[in-house]
Amino acid sequence: MTAAPAAALQADGVEVWLGRRAKSRILHGVGLTARSGEIVGLIGETGSGKTTLARAIVGLAPLHAGTVRVDGTPVDGLRGAALRRFRRSGRVQYVFQDPLRSLDPDVTVLDSVVEGLAIRGDGKAADRRARAVAALEQVGLDPALGDRLPGRLSGGQRQRVAIARALAVDPRVLLLDEPVSALDAANRNHVLRVLDRLRHEREVAIVMISHDLGSLAGIADRVVVLYRGEVVEEGPAARVLLEPEHPYTQRLVTSVPSIDGPRRPLITEGVHV
């Protein structure tokens, strides 16, 4: 156990309760591990708790029980100045689902990307701008767009700005909430290629929340299926998506529409959502 290097991200026994009673439980004993250079897909329907899990990992939702370790060091107990110091290290980055809401509408794209570096107080202002420009280029955005406000970008461009903002601080772990579900195929491919490159070139551990099984099939090494706040299945992407074991996963896989024509109609008995 001690011989293997610690995973970049390891969450164990995560419990999130909305209130004080067990009935209000949103997540129950959820574990999630992502190693450097690994892409983990987190699948689940609306209300399954997948966004809550990501928010709990970054400390936006309070943990009722469980631990979150980054490179082996527990981070869930951090508070106040220690928490701020950890966050400023930029080691764990979270990309919100809707960049239109997670980017300040009155702040230019470049300033948004600079923000993380400015808060950390890295180098001189010119230096930070250069790094922000580099981050924009890394996600395939023209740095000339940096002077625009987020409202003046297309959906695909905004999503890439949100990713660039996370990349600028050089994270070890990147959590992305539905980064491609609102994008058309060309933009989706572009974002997926960026993630694939990050994993290879910078050894980032990536957790990608998505209900787009096609995208996950393309880039995820492992997938974790969350159903009603619990992990019901996990394993290598190919195994889970080709030979799903849990009824929910099976239903999920048969639901994916194919460009090659109508699927068999679903049998509407059984699991109903």
Partner: peptide, 16 residues
């Protein structure tokens, strides 16, 4: 607001 949360996640102080 999510951009406020995003700032918090970068370790920004409340004042900032």
């Amino acid at each position: 607001a999510q951009y406020v949360e995003a700032g918090t996640l970068f370790g920004a102080t409340r004042w900032r």
